[in-house]
Write a protein that binds this DNA or RNA. Structure first.
Length: 445
RNA sequence: GCCCCCAUCGUCUAGAGGCCUAGGACGCCACCCUUUCAAGGUGGAGAUCAGGGGUUCGAAUCCCCUUGGGGGCACCA
């Protein structure tokens, strides 16, 4: 493994877990990593953390990769896609393909007596936890298997138990200089020995992240604030394994309106959902970038490249930011209005019936541009004009939408009335007689 | 319960001791433009900088406490 001329100070990484569709928070963290790399001329690595076999799927992995691409976020090193090969000299970039490395490192820890086999069952562990809770103690592993004799271990193994591997935490204070938070200190004496490899042999997050970040020469670990309490554990692991420590930066969380961590239950968290509604990636990126960062000026419209030129980790806030959909809507409108007719027509295409000709779409664009908040809103505005129903098509298309004698303002006006009118329609109103008369009346206005 | 973190208009934020009687944007309210709705323009309401102590000639900015909020405490990531 010849790894030459790698400046780890300029290497950052995003390590999503494919256990769900691309999440807003993952997208924002990816963006901050990407911007940091681009700003400093560094390298951005994508690594797939799929060690949780039960929850990880290739569909989610594809969704995440596609979502990042859609946002315009690209990486310099990452897993192979579509039958290609891994890109980069530190691959493979999928943790499920690096199992031998974790096993080797775990063995190294075992041999050095910095980790040990634990044969406790989940029931036993739970019982201990409950007892600790009753005594108002911090729930943590009590170290029962820490000093098992060879005989005791053999007995467990003979009984068919395959122990998990626990890392022995040294009870000492750990501190690091966080790029966004400054000095952070934590007393590892409060920690229990934690599991790094399950009884079934599969490695766990805190362990794999450290092994890989070190192997991939990551110099700056930029991740969400929810990982801040993993950091002391990981630092201990870095030290035990003899790796050079990276720098850490914990960025603020994106919040629900009630200021709790943004969640699926309370907010729309999947990038796909925003994409489907017709938010432009440019708008989403611009919006996301400002959730926890600002250039320090009053400018607020930035392209990805402009963001990369201005972005600095040191200007990232410590406090979380509420995801304000009104603001996203506003930004989206700004970006929609900045598009040329042709560009907007192209983007609108997926939201209109196939029956609509390119020419028709192009003619609709100037009429709707000023009032489109999301591309998907085009459906509410004019999609019905292209229904196959002959009556609707002829009336709206011929008399209303594209009238020979009327100008664009007239048409826009009519469209709005039609839209408002439609909101009050009941199912019974959808007979062609009723529609016909409505259309006739509207056309005469 | 234990540990860690955070704190400027409703929201996103500017602010790194005097430029702040706290600026911008979103949202909201008026008015203008407009046959309507938008878009655009102009103006307005909206934060005693969570509260209390210090430090200093001077604090939103530094320190401490309180309060409030959040995150984490898995053989998830």
């Amino acid at each position: 493994m010849a790894q030459t001329n790698v400046d780890r100070r300029l290497r950052v990484r995003m390590a999503p877990s494919p256990t769900g569709p691309l999440h807003i928070g993952t997208a924002r963290t990816s963006l901050y990593n990407y911007l940091t790399a681009r700003h400093d001329g560094g390298t951005f690595v994508l690594r797939i953390e799929d060690t949780d076999v039960a929850r990880s799927t290739t569909e989610f992995e594809r969704d995440i990769i596609e979502g990042l691409h859609w946002l315009g976020i690209s990486w310099d090193e990452g897993p192979q896609v579509a039958g290609g090969e891994d890109i980069g000299q530190f691959g493979p970039y999928r943790q499920s393909q690096r199992l031998d490395r974790y096993a080797a490192e775990a063995q190294r820890l075992l041999d050095a007596r910095l980790a040990y086999r634990c044969y406790c069952t989940s029931d036993e562990l739970e019982a201990v936890r409950h007892a600790q809770e009753r005594n108002h103690e911090a729930p943590r592993y009590n170290g029962r298997c820490r000093s098992l004799t060879a005989e005791e271990r053999a007995a467990f193994e003979a009984a068919g138990r395959r122990g998990a591997i626990r890392f022995e935490v040294k009870p000492e204070p750990v501190r690091w200089d966080d790029k966004v938070r400054g000095e952070v200190e934590f007393d590892n004496a409060l920690l229990g020995d934690f599991v790094i490899v399950r009884a079934d042999g599969s490695p766990l997050y805190n362990f794999t992240a450290v092994v890989d970040d070190a192997a991939m020469q990551i110099g700056d670990v930029i991740r969400g604030e929810d990982h801040i309490s993993n950091t002391p554990k990981q630092i201990a692991l870095y030290q035990a394994l003899g790796y050079e420590l990276p720098r850490f930066a914990h960025i603020p969380l994106i919040l629900n309106p009630d200021r709790t961590k943004m969640s699926k239950r309370k907010s729309q968290t999947s990038i796909d959902a925003y994409r489907e509604q017709g938010y432009l990636p440019e708008a989403l990126v611009n919006f996301l970038a400002f959730l926890g960062w600002s250039p320090g000026t009053e400018e607020e419209i930035f392209s990805l490249d402009e963001l990369a030129a201005r972005f600095e980790l040191t200007k990232v806030h410590k406090g979380g930011a509420i995801f304000d959909i009104d603001r996203l809507d506003h930004l989206n409108g700004v970006y929609i209005r900045s598009l040329t007719d042709e560009q907007l027509a192209l983007r609108l295409r997926p939201y209109l019936p196939d029956a609509a000709t390119d020419e028709t779409v192009l003619r609709v664009v100037p009429l709707v541009r000023e009032r489109l908040v999301r591309l998907g809103d085009i459906g509410d505005l004019v999609a019905f004009l292209f229904e196959t129903d002959a009556t609707i098509a002829s009336w709206y298309d011929g008399e209303l939408l594209l009238p020979k004698k009327r100008d664009a303002a007239d048409v826009a006006s009519a469209l709005t009335v039609v839209r408002d009118d439609l909101e009050h329609l009941t199912d019974a109103d959808w007979s062609s007689d009723v529609l016909d008369s409505r259309c006739r009346a509207l056309a005469e206005r």
